[in-house]
Design a binder for these strands. Structure first.
Lengths: 201, 201
DNA sequence: ACTCCATTCGAACGAACGTTCGGACGGGAT
DNA sequence: ATCCCGTCCGAACGTTCGTTCGAATGGAGT
């Protein structure tokens, strides 16, 4: 029982790595067999179809992100600080789960049917969370939904260039992006609300 | 002569549309034959391999973007205005060439060998252009290269959500993103800059 | 009238694909 | 000892893939 789950986890981790490297469609079940230590047929003891691998990677990853974001946000009360916590959690989690998050961001449209609908639901849930945070930030100078898309864009794009083991640690990247976004999103030149005063940390 | 080039253009446009819809690897040459009006074998009179289609789409598109960006930037002299012109051009061009730009952004890693190297060269050229613009903007509060990645992220991500025919016209989207980015990037009223890796300006 | 060549296609190639099937192995329960 | 069943695999299934080949077509040049 525990052994089964453990092997499934390992299989999914391997699949995420290869999917992230080569892309979902460019990866064959034989590639996964070779990299996972299982035989080609052996994989089918753990999943029914190739698409199940993609679905489970995305579904599990999204579940973790959402839960973690909720917890991170709950620790703050001031609206801008809650947004900052959301950004920081997203980036740090991304950096800690590069393969899965790249697969989540890059292979979003490859699922079909029920699996696609379910992952879309998760995405909507996560987007709604950010939306609710942005709504509470005073002094917004840019359309809220547009700002949310822009923020997700700058955060998710990191799989194309960022390497967590490089010279910029994830927390530092998160802070820079939070500053870049929040200072652009909220009014700074004209009427300034209280958030500017509590900027330090 | 002109007929050949015209048909090649049409073939590339069709390929870009299908690649954007289904993804490069999920698209078969038979799909392209069906959608282009040519037979399967007929396609090979215009390209040597499937990969040529992807390469020509990306190479031509990048050439257009770079040329257009250079022209747009040249019309401005003030540093922030030049960045704004760059952003506006990128977004408006993106909105006007959604299929090609999505293929450029999403299928970046699918090329191999010489073709990959050549497209990478174009990308480097384009990135260098933005870098040179950001360097001249005074009062930067965020690392310049990091800001460039963030900006490309928020701009290129639009292929996942933006529809030019919707309620937000491309020029409006461009202005909103320019405001979001520039006000976050440059210091306006309050100080306390953290993490300024480069001290230029 | 004849040649030439660009254009196009039907048919087929071998390879690789996702998936299935029947059975082998081995530890726990009887 | 025997049975059972979760685990795993070699081999094969039918299909689809990118690509090639030989031939047909038709307009341009002579």
């Amino acid at each position: 029982m525990a052994a089964y789950d453990q092997r499934l986890d390992a299989l999914l981790a391997t699949a995420a790595r290869i999917f992230a490297e080569r892309g979902y469609h460019a990866t064959s079940m034989r590639d996964l067999a070779r990299s996972s230590g299982l035989s080609l047929a052996g994989i089918y003891h753990y999943v029914e179809r190739k698409q199940d691998l993609l679905f489970q990677i995305q579904d599990r990853c999204f579940a973790q992100v959402i839960e973690g974001a909720r917890a991170a946000v709950a620790r703050e009360t001031e609206p801008a600080a809650r947004v900052r916590a959301f950004i920081r959690h997203h980036i740090v989690f991304f950096a800690g789960h590069m393969d899965e998050m790249k697969v989540l961001a890059h292979e979003e449209e490859e699922l079909t049917g029920t699996m696609r609908a379910r992952v879309r639901g998760r995405k909507k849930e996560y987007s709604a969370l950010l939306d609710s945070l942005l709504r509470d930030v005073p002094g917004a100078r840019v359309d809220q939904h547009l700002a949310a898309f822009a923020l997700f864009g700058m955060m998710n794009w990191i799989y194309t260039w960022y390497r967590p083991s490089g010279s910029v640690p994830p927390a530092e990247l998160a802070d820079a992006m939070a500053r870049l976004f929040l200072d652009g999103y909220t009014a700074t030149t004209h009427a300034t609300p209280r958030l500017v005063a509590t900027h330090g940390g």
